[in-house]
Amino acid sequence: MTAQYIFNGFVSGMILALPAVALTLIYGILKFPNFASGAMLTVGAYLALIFNVYLGMPLLWAAIIGSLIFALIAVGIDQAVFRQLRERTAITLLVCSMGVSFVLENIARFIFGNGARSYDLAIARPKHFFGLRINNEQIITAATAVAAMIVVYFILRHTALGRAMRAVADNPSLAAVRGVRRESIVRWTWAITGTLTAVAGVLAGMDRAIDPLLGWNYIVSTFAAAILGGLGNPVGAVIGALTVGVVEETSTLFIPPNYRQVVSFLAIALLLILRPQGLLGAAKIKK
């Protein structure tokens, strides 16, 4: 029984890992926590909904096309909004990201209304392994999230783009002297962020109903995951997300499931009191 909760927590942690990693990438390069993360996830879910339900594509293709379009939208938002604020303080940027969040969420509300929607997806019977009940959506979620994490890890570790992203995060002025063009790295980072967040939106939309507050339900948990991993550390964010997922899910054994976000909030508070650099924060070298 407990094993089932831990397994479910693991899977929801995987959904969480995508926006948490996206958050740390943006934090690394632009040094502000992106409060629009939740609304971006919502819009990603709706984009796939358009292709899946209204244009009748299989969800896989709808998700791929939707995430690519949203990658472009994310770059567009950066160019239109955040680029104008590059030299401002982190606080200005995060207040602005709140504004972006309202705009995105309400564009979705304007078009689709407040009603809950869901993807057109065949329902398969859950499978049983070692006493665990595993449904089809969970398998898809786990496979997609793991694949996305591997791709991001590969980009960061083994490509010139990844080296440049980490170099800009470490020391932007030195990177500039080495010929790394910050603006182009920022654009790529938004593209990756947009893709990851939109994919997370689709996975979240498979897990629960799609409504304009879909992403908002993840925002506190996403921040909890990112802070747990030490803001700005992608690998830490993944571990943080899995931890948050499992803790939230198992907490429903003791407290009402409505209070999941409260658990995340308490986790953030406790962590900031006890170990503000994050569980893995020491792995990041400041100087």
């Binding site: 982190a90 925002i219 909030f265 900031l272 503000p276």
Partner: peptide
């Protein structure tokens, strides 16, 4: 930034 995140969480 951390204060901002905490206040948002508290609001929730």
């Amino acid at each position: 930034e951390y204060l901002a995140i905490l206040t948002l969480g508290f609001g929730e």
